[in-house]
Nucleic acid binder design. Structure first.
Lengths: 345, 345
DNA sequence: ATGAAAGCGCTAACAC
DNA sequence: GTGTTAGCGCTTTCAT
């Protein structure tokens, strides 16, 4: 095996008895080649299993058709679904994808990651790292040094940079409003880590919805989790202590909701009869939780796909020295009603 | 923004008043440079924000330090965890990762995917597509044309190719044996799609374990699902009809187990009192299912990480024209006992 | 210790 | 229609 080692255009030209130029013309479907020659060269190419080097081409055209994607938390469903949408769209548009996963959301090694991507001559950068702590300001500082178009996902990094993100505020509002509409008044909230922008926004939606309904909130009505199922259990038990007469809870992601519902079950509280629950993310499996979970669905794949389209748009404009218009795209989440909020229970 | 556009070695050389070679020597830490010159050039490099082009380097060295990863089903937890392990390890070893996701596990467009990767001059190929239907034989046929080392994940594609995979047979055996050990005798099985090699193996483990215990199996004791939670519900209801006195079920993945348990709950069967359940995959959230799910854990990240190490080993050997030893690595799954199998219930 | 020339694989611009 | 020349950004001889 491993035969066919690296055939070059020269070898093909030699074998076909023509110049490399002619081979190149055949490859690129240039018109000025005699049909006979074209056929012949084509044949030699097939026979030798020749594959033009994208590397050499990129070097000449100053265009790699590669997009750098920086992501984080691939072990979670959200980021990996987004990545799937990204990969699919990049493929469809004839580009390739270089992947970098930032471990543990920390900022230490991001610098070298960025340098590597730029060294590889990517045509554009897709920044799909959730906005946590200080990576926001960090990227903003590095922005001027980055010589390629950028699109950011899930966060608004800079006024000048195109972003594709979800309306987390509205999602939180929707969830809470739904609980209120179904007759709940004492609606608690388990948020994600509050150094995440998404967590803050969802929480803000919860607050706003209750305010709009004229309901007072105290700090006892909220607990902060870490997105994990385990933290769902823990925070739920905490919540039952500090806010014992709650009749509903909006939980900032489905995994915590799962943990929380398990805890409620274990302490003999019924969902939704005693406490209604709404999650967030719209994971497919929430349909099979017990009880099936009311949740806020976000279309991660679409989000990735749109981001890629925008980025490539920027790239094309940029290469043609056209002005880039840094629009922000905001995607709306959708409420999925199931038995955990008591509507069809 | 977008300043600093593409500084080249020539510009640096000019600005520093030296030849391009000298800059190159500084970049590559060659000894034959006067300390003074080095300092000076170093300064100019920093100041101009110069980043040597990995493209040009790859072209010269006939070595791209890029690895092509072909995966599928990123929306599922398994593949994305594996990818995470792969990405991490590739980064650690100083390579970059070009990602291709095959949509819908079909084989139509795989050919072009492979060609693109090879055109990009990848140093090695990581084949992480589950073995379904005919993609097995397809890849085997293309194998001789692929001029770079390959490592396959999750399947044994060819005797000559290094593979890293899980012992699915043993996993199925473990699960079934556990149910038997806890006193169950009428142990049914919900498998994954049987055109998946993994499904077949897990099922074989179930059969073997029952055979070893002297228990007879008929076709009524098994149903075939499609990995989804919905199919878990459906197949479970089917199973209750065709094998009404079952007292345990081994289900080939956790998502189907979730759906199955929901169905059991809805029809008034208690888990584990009436029916014990064991899943497969060891998803973190299974700890919070109701009841917490006994499952077979597989370390996907480790699997990806090992595959990368092996692949890079092959690459280095290959480049130095050393023989490549196509060992297969088999990873063992681990049983996690929780209440769904009735042990601590 | 430094520079000049050649070339990695390919294509754009110009000959003929 | 086809070949020749030059060069993308970099490194590797080989001079000096």
């Amino acid at each position: 095996m491993y035969k066919n080692r690296k055939v070059t255009i020269k070898q093909v030209a030699k074998a076909a008895g023509v110049s490399t130029q002619t081979v190149s013309r055949v490859l690129n479907d240039h018109p000025d080649v005699a049909d006979q020659t074209r056929q012949h060269v084509q044949g030699v190419i097939e026979e030798m299993g020749y594959r033009p080097s994208a590397l050499a081409r990129s070097l000449i055209h100053q265009r790699s058709f590669m997009i750098g994607v920086v992501t984080a938390g691939l072990k979670y469903t959200g980021p990996s679904r987004t990545l799937s949408g990204i990969a699919d769209q990049i493929e469809k548009m004839g580009y390739s994808l270089i992947l970098k996963e930032v471990q543990h959301f920390n900022v230490n090694n991001i610098d070298s990651i960025l340098n590597e991507l730029l060294a590889r001559q990517i045509d554009g950068l897709l920044w799909a790292v959730p906005e946590v702590e200080d990576n926001y300001t960090w990227l903003q500082n590095r922005l001027p040094e980055i010589p390629v178009p950028i699109v950011s996902l899930h966060e608004q990094i800079h006024r000048g940079v195109t972003a594709v993100l979800f309306d987390n505020f509205h999602g939180g509002y929707l969830a809470t409003q739904h609980l209120f509409d179904t007759g709940r008044q004492r609606i608690a909230h388990i948020s994600g880590p509050l150094d995440w922008w998404a967590s803050k926004e969802r929480k803000r939606g919860w607050q706003q919805a209750l305010n709009a309904a004229g309901i007072q909130i105290t700090s006892l009505h909220h607990v902060e989790g870490d997105w994990s199922g385990a933290s769902g259990e823990k925070t739920m038990s905490q919540l039952l202590i500090q806010y014992p007469d709650l009749d509903a809870v909006f939980i900032a992601n489905d995994h915590m909701a799962l943990g929380a519902m398990l805890h409620l079950h274990q302490v003999g509280k019924r969902v939704p009869e005693d406490i209604a629950v709404v999650g967030y993310d719209g994971l497919p499996e929430t349909k099979h939780y017990s009880p099936p979970l009311t949740t806020i669905e976000i279309n991660q794949r679409e989000c990735g796909s749109i981001a890629v389209k925008r980025l490539i748009e920027c790239i094309e404009n940029y290469k043609e020295h056209q002005p880039v218009d840094p629009k922000t795209v905001v995607l709306q989440p959708r409420l999925i009603v199931r038995s955990s909020s008591g509507v069809d229970a």
